[in-house]
């Protein structure tokens, strides 16, 4: 039933947007972290989205090949770290500079807003599909 596929597609959108929110939150939480397991300051994470074909992922023969979305990978932002002069900091180098994460609070907030807006759009779509399915059940009643 194509309406149920529509639900799956929008659910994949919800998952993708939620992952974006999670990653942005992690970036914000670690915006001042100078020590990580790998050593050095925290590096900003970034989500890469790609389309999935539901024909492939669910093995269903859909003539129109509706495309959902999925997180293909989470990559590290390779932009340089923020270098601040803080000679008293235990992680300061010989010149007194400390490397801070390459996280910009402004950028993360913009990302969070975009992700939550898009999450809502998918929720709205699910609402419409639900009402369509409910009405379908009422045919002939």
């Amino acid at each position: 039933m194509s309406l149920l596929n529509a639900l799956d597609v929008n659910a994949s959108g919800l998952t993708a947007q939620r992952t974006r929110v999670e990653i942005s939150s992690a970036n914000l939480a670690n915006s001042q972290t100078t020590r990580t397991l790998e050593g050095g300051p925290y590096r900003r994470q970034q989500v890469v989205l790609q389309t999935t074909s539901f024909e492939e992922s669910l093995g269903r023969a859909l003539a129109d090949g509706v495309q959902g979305v999925e997180v293909s990978q989470v990559v590290q932002d390779q932009r340089p770290f923020d270098r601040r002069y803080e000679p008293g900091h235990p992680d300061a180098d010989s010149e007194g500079y400390v490397l801070y994460p390459n996280v910009s609070a402004m950028e993360e907030m913009a990302n969070l807003m975009s992700a939550s807006r898009n999450y809502e759009a998918n929720i709205a779509a699910i609402g419409v599909v639900k009402s369509m399915i409910t009405r379908t059940m009422e045919i002939g009643r």
């Binding site: 194509s2 597609v9 959108g13 129109d64 509706v66 779509a125």
Partner: peptide, 24 residues
Amino acid sequence: LLTWTAKRQQAIGANLANLDTPGY
């Protein structure tokens, strides 16, 4: 008409799911 409308919802839903997908 009912079948096509359901199909359209599927296409629009996919567009919404891919709001942020590069190249989509």
